[in-house]
Measured scan of single mutants.
Amino acid sequence: MAEAPPRRLGLGPPPGDAPRAELVALTAVQSEQGEAGGGGSPRRLGLLGSPLPPGAPLPGPGSGSGSACGQRSSAAHKRYRRLQNWVYNVLERPRGWAFVYHVFIFLLVFSCLVLSVLSTIQEHQELANECLLILEFVMIVVFGLEYIVRVWSAGCCCRYRGWQGRFRFARKPFCVIDFIVFVASVAVIAAGTQGNIFATSALRSMRFLQILRMVRMDRRGGTWKLLGSVVYAHSKELITAWYIGFLVLIFASFLVYLAEKDANSDFSSYADSLWWGTITLTTIGYGDKTPHTWLGRVLAAGFALLGISFFALPAGILGSGFALKVQEQHRQKHFEKRRMPAANLIQAAWRLYSTDMSRAYLTATWYYYDSILPSFRELALLFEHVQRARNGGLRPLEVRRAPVPDGAPSRYPPVATCHRPGSTSFCPGESSRMGIKDRIRMGSSQRRTGPSKQHLAPPTMPTSPSSEQVGEATSPTKVQKSWSFNDRTRFRASLRLKPRTSAEDAPSEEVA
């Protein structure tokens, strides 16, 4: 009796068929016929556990003709996506030579605008209408194809895939403007070719909807975003200037109206006075309405000098805001240009540092100066060695804690006790272990408590650290204090090793 083939788990290929790579489910599931010992083939499952149809090819690079078809379809799909992405970037994010197409579109729109203006002049109306009709045909074809291509290429973005995504893309403001202008152009052409009475009025009214094509030149909205950011950044200043200017306008108009309503027919109503105030304070000055009385002229002159300053403030605020924003954008561009080279330089330096163990090129690091100058660790070890030599091999803490019996001779020589300023008595072995921070803190506390006492003391002649007598400086308080830590004499004296002298005989010792 033939044995059933062993159940295979995992992703390994079956024996005897090495080139074939078959994806098997996580659990080997066989058909009921196979479990019962029949000759049925096992049921194939996909990666998600769903059964595959009987005629479906197995996924994998070596699955025969199905694999070749899959490779061809995958390559075609990649080319399709690449083309779609390229078209989308050309239309929505132009760079380099892609601006040539947008310059061509701008020339078409500008020519249409010029011809629309010439069509309103009686001398050039006939020729402009003929040229404009031909140009409209060209623009309908160009913009119609462009609109379709834009909607198709938007599928390269995830949020615009599918018919719902394309509809979302078509609802964008600039796409809506394109659609309105396209419909208006078709209506103008249809009305112009019919030759009816309505054609002339339709051409004159709907052609100027094509002015909206100038708005579509900035599809990404960079200028509007820049203007919005400047207004938002200086909103408080703008609101303040406009508010005060509006108050000056209504008060000036009302007072001039009261002064001129009886003697001047131009100011017969408050609305006429508001019109005069707006034209005057905005420095336009049509001259259609002028005050005639001396009181009205004085009020107009005073409020004009006051109001023009507030009406001119928004222009200066926006101008300075634009300058600052442009400078910030230039700085951001320079930062973006330098970020990648800086990151590459840091990575290269780290690779060199991690692979080169000698690091002989590091001549400006802490390790280099640590090898030249005595390190703080060596100074600490030197302090501890000196203290243990004086205390008979014991550390200062051990000397303080060691009990001394009554009447027993002390094995240590008597030492002079010292007192730290602002604290109780402490171990004499710690007097010379006072660090730089303690010395600086002690000097600052003395300056806070009594700076007036220092200038009363007789001035001391500054001497070099080499000429100081070591026996005289029994305490860190003898170090000359200065008002600034930048004094080199104080810094050098604080680094010197001060020996400890006994109370009975204080021989001067120098520590090399």
Results as ranks from 00 to 15, higher is better:
A2G: 05
E3V: 14
A4G: 13
A4V: 03
P5L: 09
P5T: 05
P6S: 10
P6T: 02
R8H: 12
L9F: 02
L11P: 09
P13A: 02
P13S: 05
G16W: 06
D17N: 11
A18T: 02
R20L: 03
R20P: 04
A21T: 10
L23Q: 09
V24L: 09
L26H: 14
L26I: 04
A28V: 04
A28S: 09
Q30P: 06
Q33L: 07
G37C: 04
G39A: 06
S41T: 02
P42A: 05
P42R: 07
P42T: 10
R44G: 03
L45P: 03
G46R: 05
L52R: 14
P54L: 08
G55C: 02
G55D: 04
A56P: 09
P57H: 03
L58R: 04
P59T: 09
G60E: 14
G60W: 08
P61Q: 07
S63C: 05
S63A: 15
S65P: 07
S65L: 08
G66R: 12
A68G: 02
A68T: 15
G70S: 09
Q71E: 05
R72H: 04
A76E: 14
R79L: 15
R81S: 06
R82P: 05
R82G: 12
V87L: 14
Y88H: 09
V90A: 03
V90M: 04
L91M: 14
R95S: 12
G96R: 05
A98S: 06
H102P: 00
V103A: 08
S111T: 07
S116T: 02
L118R: 11
S119Y: 04
Q122H: 06
Q122K: 13
N129Y: 08
E130G: 14
L133V: 00
I134V: 11
E136D: 00
E136Q: 00
M139I: 01
V141M: 00
G144V: 03
G144S: 01
Y147S: 07
V149A: 08
R150W: 00
A154V: 11
C157G: 11
C157F: 07
C157W: 04
C158F: 12
C158G: 01
C158W: 09
Y160F: 07
W163R: 01
R166H: 09
R168C: 11
A170S: 13
P173L: 04
F174L: 07
I177S: 00
I177F: 15
V186M: 06
V186L: 12
I189T: 13
G192R: 15
G195A: 02
I197L: 00
A199T: 15
S201Y: 07
A202P: 15
A202S: 13
R204H: 14
M206T: 00
F208S: 00
F208V: 01
I211F: 00
L212M: 03
R213S: 00
V215M: 01
M217V: 10
D218N: 00
R220C: 00
R220L: 06
T223I: 00
K225M: 09
K225R: 01
G228R: 00
V231F: 00
S235C: 06
K236Q: 01
I239T: 01
A241D: 13
I250F: 02
I250V: 14
D262H: 10
D262E: 08
A271T: 00
A271S: 00
L281F: 09
I284V: 06
V298I: 03
A300G: 10
A301T: 03
A301V: 07
F303C: 04
A312T: 13
A315S: 05
G319S: 15
S320T: 10
Q327P: 02
Q327R: 15
F335L: 09
A343V: 06
L345R: 14
Q347E: 02
